[in-house]
């Protein structure tokens, strides 16, 4: 059964169409890569899923429930966690408090106490190996640490779906491999579906993905198992600017 289903989503800004009739399905525990250059509508699509924007047309169905116009703060507890393209930590709060916020407000029962949240935060922080920094204000972290902190914050929400916006941007290639392996491991252990969004076809990310969706100028042009997607002529055209040579 699919976990997330988008049906014909269209989102406009003034006269511009940011996302054009996109439909897609994500299954439970699936690892999906969404690829598209800057301005292809990826971030807008994430914002539609997490409720920052409501689409003009189409429906968003999560876990069997229509959430198209549900307020964003009501979506997180259903199991939708996300990280941001440019990390958005609560800068003055410590890493531990940041992650605790995820546990406190983002879980389904809604009844996690402050102390329990802090305990969950401690455990989650260890998983992303930030324990040395846990009492630092989140604003004082390095960019890569901030990304890890955001992942921990999202994981503390016990999501069913984790949306990761450019999680590996700016990382050293070796770190990327490690990071992707780590995310994959978590996804398998906790049965979280992961949608990772990247600007370029990154070997590491796409290699791990079971499915690749390619967006181009707001429209979905490819949605196929990884191997097929990479060989699709349309993908090559978008990324190389010309049709593949025979």
């Amino acid at each position: 059964m699919s976990l997330l289903k988008l049906e014909n989503i269209t989102k406009r800004f003034g006269g511009l169409i940011a996302v054009n009739k996109v439909s897609l399905e994500i299954s439970k525990g699936e690892f999906v890569g969404i690829v598209g250059p800057n301005g292809s509508g990826k971030t807008t699509l994430f914002n539609v899923i997490s409720g920052v924007y409501f689409p003009e047309e189409g429906r968003v169905i999560f876990d069997g429930q229509d959430i198209t116009t549900l307020q964003p703060y009501k979506r997180a507890p259903l199991g939708i966690g996300r990280t941001f393209q440019i990390p958005r930590p609560f800068a003055s709060a410590t890493v531990r408090e940041n992650v605790a916020v995820g546990a406190m407000f983002g879980t389904l029962s809604g009844k996690v106490s402050v102390d329990e949240s802090l305990e969950i935060a401690d455990k989650t922080i260890e998983r992303v190996r930030l324990q040395e920094h846990k009492d630092k204000p989140a604003g004082a972290l390095t960019p890569v640490e901030k990304k890890l902190m955001e992942i921990a914050r999202a994981l503390a929400m016990k999501p069913k779906l984790l949306l990761m916006d450019e999680a590996m941007a700016g990382m050293h290639p070796n770190d990327i491999d490690q990071m992707v392996a780590f995310i994959k491991q978590i996804a398998v252990e906790e049965k979280i579906a992961i949608v990772s969004m990247v600007e370029h076809i990154m070997r590491a990310v796409v290699g791990m993905a079971e499915k690749v969706i390619v967006l181009h100028q707001g429209s979905k042009i490819v949605d196929a198992p990884t191997k097929e997607a990479l060989e699709d002529p349309k993908v090559v055209e978008v990324y190389l600017g010309h049709p593949p040579e025979e």
Partner: peptide, 12 residues
């Protein structure tokens, strides 16, 4: 610190 991020984290 960040109202939009707070909303997405499930805060009313």
């Amino acid at each position: 610190e960040d109202e939009d991020a707070a909303k997405v984290m499930g805060i009313n």
